[in-house]
């Protein structure tokens, strides 16, 4: 089947019952997207499909065929990090960082739709993500600073 991942068109031979996450990680070697709970609860596997934050662990790969898939590896513009990535680094918005790529993908999708979200809107958009280290405070600060209203502290 045909997949479009990070602006690259790819042909992959995979079984229909594979999840998008499994194909990204094990066929395409894109290990930045993480397997957390495997049932759509924790947010670690979040990627963008046609710009929308989506759980790749409960998305059959076939239903993503022909769509624009963006993973954490495709978010930067060459060597230039995405503003959300910059902000996460700036604010050390992680500890173990297992959840980070999922948080960043949802945050990027949020800011794409709403460049100046309120704190409540950020919390709502990220409420489906779990950080077991509890870096939530820093994550919210990072997203806020990457938003139109944020700026440097």
């Amino acid at each position: 089947m045909h997949l479009k991942v990070n602006d690259e068109s790819l042909e992959v031979a995979v079984d229909a019952e594979r999840t998008l996450l499994s194909v990204l990680r094990h066929e395409l070697g894109l290990m930045g997207t993480k397997y957390g709970c495997g049932e759509g609860n924790c947010g670690a596997c979040t990627v963008l499909i046609d710009g929308e934050a989506t759980r790749s662990c409960i998305t059959p790969v076939t239903s993503a065929g022909g769509r624009e898939i963006t993973t954490i590896e495709g978010l930067a513009n060459g060597d230039e990090l995405h503003p959300v990535q910059e902000a996460f680094v700036e604010h050390t918005a992680f500890q173990c960082a297992y959840c980070t790529s999922g948080f960043i993908m949802s945050s990027a999708a949020l800011l794409d739709r709403n460049p100046s979200p309120s704190d409540a809107q950020i919390q709502s958009a990220l409420s489906g993500h779990i950080c077991r280290c509890g870096a939530y405070g820093r994550i919210l600060k990072a997203v806020k600073s990457a938003s139109g209203e944020g700026g440097a502290e």
């Binding site: 759509g40 929308e52 949802s106």
Partner: peptide
């Protein structure tokens, strides 16, 4: 329902 990521799907 679920979260934003779930609602998108």
């Amino acid at each position: 329902i679920g979260s934003w990521q779930i609602q998108n799907r």
